[in-house]
C-alpha cells in the first residue's frame, strides 16, 4: 500500500516514479483518486434502498455475491444535478477495509502525476473537508482535485463504519416493564 502523505524518498539520481490517479467528473469538476484503491468500474445499476440511511447512501447492490453499499459523491458533496443516465458511472473502491461503490458523473482517464505536480490543497471551507484531500494536481492546465478516498470512506461522518452497538436498537430500547397496558 502506498502511503499518500509520506512519500518514500526517491532513489538517488532517479526522479520519483509518478503516481497514477483515476480521474472522474463531479458537476463539471475533475477529481482523482489513487488508482490502487480502485477495484473496478461499472455502470450505474438499480440499487436496493436501505431504510433510514443518509441520502448519499443510494443503497446496496449485488457484486458477484457480495453485498456492496453504493454512495453518491455528488449528493455527499452537495453538488447540483445528480442525474442517473447512461454516462453515470460507479467506481468500485476497495478502501478502509470495505468494498464500496462510488457514483460519479463520469470516469475520464488514468493520470500519472509526478510528485512535484501535486500541490497542497487550500482549505475549501465547503462540502469537502480539507482532511480528505490529498492535494491539487495540474493536468494539461486543468485542475485536478485529489481525494483521499480511504480517509473519506473510513471517516465516522461518512457513516459507513459506525461501530456496532453505538446505535443498536437495544440501547434505545426502554425497559419492557412499563409497556404493560
Amino acid at each position: 500500500m502506498i502511503d499518500i502523505d509520506k512519500p518514500s524518498p526517491p532513489a538517488r539520481g532517479m526522479p520519483a516514479p509518478p503516481r497514477e490517479f483515476l480521474t472522474f467528473t463531479l458537476a463539471g469538476e475533475e477529481y482523482g483518486i489513487d488508482i490502487l484503491k480502485v477495484q473496478e468500474i461499472r455502470g450505474y445499476d438499480a440499487v436496493t434502498r436501505i431504510p433510514n440511511a443518509p441520502d448519499f447512501v443510494r443503497g446496496v447492490i449485488n457484486l458477484r455475491g457480495t453485498i456492496v453499499p453504493v454512495v453518491d459523491l455528488r449528493t455527499k458533496f452537495r453538488l447540483p444535478d445528480a442525474r442517473y443516465d447512461e454516462f453515470t458511472a460507479m467506481i468500485v473502491v476497495n478502501a478502509a477495509r470495505r468494498v464500496v461503490g462510488v457514483v460519479v458523473d463520469g470516469v475520464c482517464d488514468v493520470a500519472p502525476l509526478a510528485r512535484d505536480e501535486i500541490h497542497i490543497a487550500p482549505e475549501f471551507g465547503g462540502a469537502i473537508d480539507g482532511r480528505f484531500l490529498t492535494g491539487i494536481g495540474t493536468r494539461d492546465g486543468r485542475m485536478l482535485i485529489l481525494l483521499d478516498i480511504e480517509g473519506l470512506l473510513g471517516s465516522t461522518e461518512f457513516g459507513l463504519t459506525a461501530t456496532y452497538g453505538a446505535d443498536a436498537p437495544i440501547n434505545q430500547e426502554s425497559p419492557t416493564c412499563h409497556a404493560s397496558p
Binding site: 470495505r98 464500496v100 457513516g159 459507513l160 443498536a168
Partner: peptide, 9 residues
C-alpha cells in the same frame, strides 16, 4: 450487510 456497510436498524 455489515461486512461492507454497517448495522441497519
Amino acid at each position: 450487510i455489515e461486512s461492507n456497510y454497517r448495522r441497519v436498524d
